[in-house]
Design a protein around this nucleic acid. Structure first.
Length: 515
RNA sequence: UCCUCGGUAGCUCAGUGGUAGAGCGAUCGGCUGUUAACCGAUUGGUCGGGGGUUCAAGUCCCUCCCGAGGAGCCA
């Protein structure tokens, strides 16, 4: 129940008849949750006075910030002292405080003023609201402060909330008081344009801009949706280790660190650690940071990124493709449902996202090669796709396409060979539309001990480092499948951003680790 | 690592071998409904570093540094 504030507190408590002799009296719902700054003054109303009760009733919890008026059956009237403004910690709370006095602390986004009127754009709780002050509405001291306050200064303001069509948000605060908590000098990011190199040097301050705030809110929603998706389907979250003794897949470059005299590496995937856990707990997933020391210098790569990886026992390849499709459709729907303000700030073409509904087209690698050749791309069977190939393929569909059954030669060692043709493996990549490319890579894993051993040897991997991984095939082997999704690529797709660096608060890129 | 393009005021950028420029910001003044407010004035420079060609280099050449985009690799 939303706290009752200000004038709403005037009324009769607990389901009694409204006292119609006083216009402002109203009947409160039961139980009434009182706003933080409500001061209760309960007095016996006429029927109780007639019954002989003369002294005021004590309020249930006087000055309790979250007080509940819980005096069931009492026949009494509440009145509130209206002198204290209501503390507001986010501009989102303003729409239910129309007409009330509020007090709000935040940062000054921008200011526009003429000689005798000033408009302040105030950021509070991630959103912004316009505050307006006329010269005569505030004290001389407050007006002097309004005149000298600078962009990104910290301020505290008091005023009345009102609906106002001329305000960008439709709500406005008519200022009564204004106070500078900290006067900022020369905030580097001005309201005009800046280059990305400059903005990245000031990433810690760039976060305050509306587009960056929106992208990070979408990221937060996506991460919440991921956890909800797996929680609702009875998965257990397994936090895989970040420090690992050896390469998980052996192909990519790893960040090396010292581990008490031994070498250790930052994890590039949690999947291998998930497979033993799946034998213990059933459906599992991991979700955490991942590190690749590849010298990739493109808009689609970060050195540190977040990956979610589910692993499902007894799920075979077709079921994996179904899960991939269901997962992506769920996340897109959640973003559309809960991130409307953010998508509007980002000017995302939402019709492109609304089209992301099952079923997704599914083609094999061999079919993909044929399609590419028809489209004039000279790729031959056995080559891996590059960015161009992914874009051409994805552009042939209006929703993500699942490409499966790749040549074993360029895929990871643990992928299960296809039953009909052992030159290809049961791996699947999901290519997103609009040039966003590979979002998900998954596969059915080899569960036969001897075959996996053979693959480890073929890939020249250090056998001793994989003994524990082989144990999964030694003690109760089971078919299983899973996939990995890069959060930043997915968020970039949702937001329509061309570069991953804006989808993570502090991106780590080639040679760049500041701030 | 390779390829391409860049580096000029705090920021974004013009600049034809011949006097270093604009807009924004900042500072000062004006303006009672602004929407990246507007109007006037002021302020602001190691032209990325070094070397060379030239009477003269921001401009041409060499070299190094830094940045952006892409390739490979991948999510």
């Amino acid at each position: 129940m939303a706290p009752l504030q200000g004038q709403e507190l005037l009324g009769n408590l607990l389901g009694c008849e409204p006292d119609r002799r006083r216009r402002r009296d109203r009947c409160l719902p039961e139980p009434a949750v009182l706003g933080r700054h409500a001061r209760l003054h309960l007095v016996a109303s006429a029927p109780l006075r007639r019954a002989g009760l003369k002294r005021p009733l004590r309020p249930p919890r006087r000055h309790d910030p979250r007080g509940v008026a819980d005096a069931p059956g009492r026949w009494c009237r509440i009145s509130a002292l209206m002198s204290d403004p209501i503390h507001v910690s986010s501009v989102r709370e303003l729409s239910r405080n129309i007409g009330n006095q509020v007090i709000l602390s935040g940062w000054l986004d921008n200011k526009r003023s003429s000689g005798k009127i000033a408009f302040l754009q105030v950021r509070c709780g991630g959103g912004t609201v316009q505050a307006v002050a006329g010269r005569k509405d505030v004290s001389d001291e407050a007006w002097a402060d309004i005149e000298k306050v600078t962009q990104e200064s910290t301020i505290r303001l008091t005023g009345t909330v009102k609906e106002e069509k001329r305000s960008p948000s439709g709500v406005e605060i008519q200022l009564a008081g204004f106070e500078i908590l900290h006067l900022t000098q020369d905030f580097p990011i001005t309201p005009k344009e800046h280059g990305t190199a400059f903005l990245m040097e000031h990433r810690h301050l760039w976060l305050r801009s509306s587009r960056q705030r929106s992208a990070l809110r979408v990221r937060s929603e996506v991460e919440q949706a991921i956890r909800d998706f797996f929680y609702e389907r009875d998965f257990t979250l397994i936090d895989s280790p970040i420090l690992t003794p050896a390469a998980c897949e052996g192909t990519s470059n790893l960040f090396e660190t010292d581990y008490f005299g031994d070498k250790a590496y930052l994890s590039q995937s949690g999947q291998l650690y998930l497979e033993p856990a799946a034998a213990a707990l059933g459906k599992v997933y991991c979700f955490g940071p991942t590190f690749r020391a590849e010298k990739s210098k493109t808009r689609r790569h970060l050195m540190e990124f977040w990956m979610v990886e589910p692993e499902i026992p007894f799920l075979e390849f077709d079921g994996l493709c179904d899960l991939t499709e269901e997962f992506v459709a769920y996340l897109v729907r959640r973003v559309l449902e809960r991130c409307q303000p953010e998508l509007k700030v980002l000017e995302r073409d939402q019709s492109k996202l609304e089209a992301i509904v099952p079923p997704f087209p599914r083609i094999t690698y061999t079919e993909a090669v044929e399609r590419l050749n028809k489209a004039g791309n000279p790729i031959v069977w056995g080559d891996d796709f590059g960015g161009d190939e992914e874009t051409i393929l994805a552009s042939q569909f209006d929703r993500p396409v699942l490409v499966s059954r790749f040549p074993a030669a360029f895929k990871a060692f643990y992928m299960q060979p296809a039953p009909e043709d052992d030159r290809v493996v049961l791996g699947v990549d999901l290519l997103a539309p609009e040039g966003y490319g590979e979002i998900i890579g998954g596969s059915q894993r080899i569960h036969d001990h001897d075959l996996l051993l053979q693959r480890i040897r073929q890939h020249d991997l250090p056998l001793e480092a994989f003994q524990w991984y082989l144990d999964v095939r030694k003690y109760g082997a089971y078919p299983h499948s899973g996939f990995g999704m890069g959060i930043e690529r997915f968020v970039a797709w949702m937001c329509g951003l061309s570069h991953l660096r804006e989808t993570i608060p502090y991106p780590r890129m080639l040679y760049k680790i500041y701030p």
